[in-house]
Computed example of a mutant assay.
Amino acid sequence: MAILVDNNSRIVVQGLTGSAGRRHALLCREYGSQVVAGVTPGKGGTQVEGIPVFDSVEQAVRQTGADVGLIFVPPPVAADAILEACAAQLDLAVCITEGIPVRDMVLVNRMLRESRTRLIGPNCPGLITPGACKVGIMPGEIHRPGAIGVVSRSGTLTYEAVQQLSDAGLGQSTCVGIGGDPIIGTSFIDILQLFNEDPATEGVFLIGEIGGSAEEEAAAWIGRHMRKPVAAFIAGRTAPPGKRMGHAGAVISGASGRAVDKITALQAAGVEVATGPARLAEAMQQALRRGAGS
């Protein structure tokens, strides 16, 4: 088993005819994902290397049975693309787009509360169930099927963690990049809950960063509910206050969002926190050993 996507997932790519959409859709298909449709208004009836293009998500869903959306569109129209995916009642929408205005995402999140669609992102690398389905821009070759769930706010650090886990013989059940913006569709807690309920996931690696309170909230949830061992790494320990570090949400403001507070909260919840970026797999192995001994 896995969470969110598997080899039965059928993907429609919004923005398929753009350069990024085309490239990554074909890479997803090459990985083995079922990319069944694309959407670009005004280009319905055309194809991209055998993938049919439709004018709307609703048409694509009706004619191909797509249930997962992958969004590669410019920031000014990304919110509308997400809402279109919701209106078509996709089970899952994955928005890779970076730079969506916060005001747009406030409106999107309001609509998501009344929708059946789960949103991953925006400003995220997507997700992958190794050996079954890739939805997004994650490099498929570094992943190995296994029992470690990965959830992350960071794209590049996700790849580093996965490479270390795979090299250590720790394959992954599903890897989810939730996105680094201040407002996102799916939280750490949402994914932790899914991993907690997934019988194929035996442990979880969480990658956080400075800014906001998502990691502290996740730590509180882990302490109360998590039944599986968790390891973590928090990026940005040396970041100066007030300076944005990469992601829009990665900003320390006063005493809020500091790495030290996130680490302290996670450790208090029983999470094994890696002491550096070269020791991610080591922390996961230690968490699994502690879990086996408890």
Rank of each mutant, 00 (worst) to 15 (best):
247 H>D: 10
159 Y>P: 03
240 P>I: 14
126 G>Y: 00
30 E>V: 13
90 L>T: 00
269 A>I: 06
24 H>F: 12
35 V>Y: 06
227 R>A: 15
289 R>A: 12
94 V>M: 07
111 M>N: 13
106 V>K: 15
289 R>L: 15
137 I>G: 00
52 P>W: 01
206 L>I: 01
61 V>H: 01
80 D>L: 15
183 I>P: 02
63 Q>W: 13
100 I>F: 09
261 D>C: 07
112 L>Q: 07
280 L>D: 05
259 A>R: 03
147 A>C: 14
172 Q>N: 04
279 R>D: 15
62 R>C: 13
178 I>V: 12
93 A>S: 09
155 G>H: 02
146 G>C: 09
125 P>E: 02
89 Q>Y: 06
103 R>M: 13
146 G>V: 06
248 A>C: 11
59 Q>N: 15
150 V>L: 11
153 R>P: 02
232 A>E: 01
272 E>A: 11
38 G>H: 06
217 E>W: 06
219 A>G: 01
61 V>A: 03
100 I>L: 11
288 L>W: 13
202 E>C: 08
156 T>Q: 07
75 P>G: 04
166 S>I: 05
163 Q>T: 13
135 V>F: 04
197 E>K: 13
274 A>N: 04
235 A>C: 14
131 G>L: 08
9 S>L: 09
213 S>T: 09
19 S>M: 10
76 P>A: 10
229 P>Y: 03
197 E>R: 13
118 R>T: 08
136 G>H: 00
10 R>H: 10
130 P>N: 07
70 L>W: 00
97 T>Y: 09
285 Q>A: 09
196 N>R: 14
77 V>Q: 09
241 P>H: 08
43 K>L: 15
206 L>G: 00
14 Q>E: 14
248 A>Y: 06
162 V>C: 02
216 E>F: 06
27 L>R: 12
